[in-house]
Nucleic acid binder design. Structure first.
Lengths: 215, 215
DNA sequence: CAGCTAACTCACTAGTACGTACATTAGGAG
DNA sequence: CTCCTAATGTACGTACTAGTGAGTTAGCTG
């Protein structure tokens, strides 16, 4: 048995090459949109060549779909680690909102990909079997919090889990996705630390106030 | 003096041609994004030719900026017609939220242009003098409602007009802008009438609950 | 009606962007 | 050590795409 070089030293390594393509492609698509992204540009920013992109992914569109699949899969995996069910309903939903906020704050590229995919009416997502069968763990969490809150009487508003998720997401998504036009037109950088912290508290208070209803 | 043909019958009419270019271009940019939009495609869908686009607008980018300017100007003009100040604070802010909701519902192309412009980090908006000096009338309206509500004691939360505007916009924007990925992943069409009506009430209740605070 | 210019048409180009044919090599299997 | 194949590199083709050069005409002005 000869000495095996460690993975990082191997000159030929399919997994490593594929992973690098996906990483660089994600940046490129997020920065320039689907049509604006350049396959040649992705290739130039890598150790490897454009030929490899086509060898592994076949086409620009399939590469883009692979990027979406990877991004969504990671996000869903992260969602599954959220644990707020040991908290009382009010604190649970507030914490969930704030974690969602943090999550959006940290995954700018993912937010952009979602925005881009919506420009294209989700046509690529619909082509992916992986994404079609990717559950949404966060909905179950919200459902249980809502049930607990209604049972204890703390939540008065009769809300649906998808709606509540949408309410939280919209706030967090908008702050990140629209920060540039918002900044240009209102002169306020929603991503700046001082605004970020206030808006983080705001999203939590917003959901709690909504669910508690008009006392 | 010879008989004047009416504007619509004139074969040569700069204003009419420019207006048609802008209208078709808005659709094309909204549908395919900045990079995905095709100047030739815009030309083909018109009475006139591609050469005219360059004659009047000079470049694809300047055409795109002109489209943004027109869209934003129209939206701001519409905002100025909003009149809720004869209402009591709670009803005023609720109505404003619902009108904002309707407004987003009606101007899908505009929403998409905003999303697209954010993908490009608002670089085109920043190049436009028109847009830099376009006020935001809605902020004054919100300010006055907040002042009235705080004076009367109905609003407890110490909120800032820009934040409240952001809260309302985010909800309305997200429902329209992200309807495709949301629909694909959660199996719910937020644009369908039954959901639309519920979400419309929801945005109003959300702001009111937030401003009234935890009683 | 003559002349002038803004409005318009047509044919074309230079460069770009996705994708591929073909040659080559690393490195594991036997 | 040899062979075989997955992995990789090079160079190129085809189609598209923004933008333009140069000529033409509608229709207003005097």
């Amino acid at each position: 048995m000869t000495t095996q070089p460690v993975a990082s030293e191997r000159q030929r390594d399919a997994e490593r090459t594929k992973a690098e393509i996906l990483k660089v492609a994600q940046q490129e698509f997020a920065r320039h949109g689907y049509a604006g992204a350049r396959v040649d540009e992705i290739a130039e920013r890598m150790r490897t060549t454009k030929r490899m992109i086509y060898y592994y992914f076949g086409s620009k569109e399939r590469l883009y779909i692979a990027v979406l699949e990877k991004a969504y899969t990671e996000v869903r995996a992260m969602e599954r680690t959220i644990d707020v069910e040991h908290l009382a309903p009010v604190e649970a939903i507030r914490t969930l909102a704030e974690l969602t906020f943090d999550h959006h704050d940290l995954h700018r590229d993912f937010i952009k990909l979602v925005a881009i995919e919506n420009v294209h009416q989700a046509e690529h997502i619909r082509k992916s079997e992986v994404l079609a069968n990717l559950g949404t763990p966060v909905l179950d969490v919200i459902s249980r919090i809502l049930d607990a809150g209604q049972a204890s009487g703390e939540f008065v508003t009769d809300a649906d889990a998808i709606d509540v998720h949408m309410m939280i997401s919209s706030f967090c998504f908008f702050r990140v996705a629209n920060q540039h036009t918002f900044g240009a037109l209102f002169g306020r950088d929603m991503a700046a630390p001082e605004h970020r912290d206030r808006l983080r508290r705001m999203v939590g208070e917003m959901v709690v106030a909504y669910l508690r209803g008009q006392a």
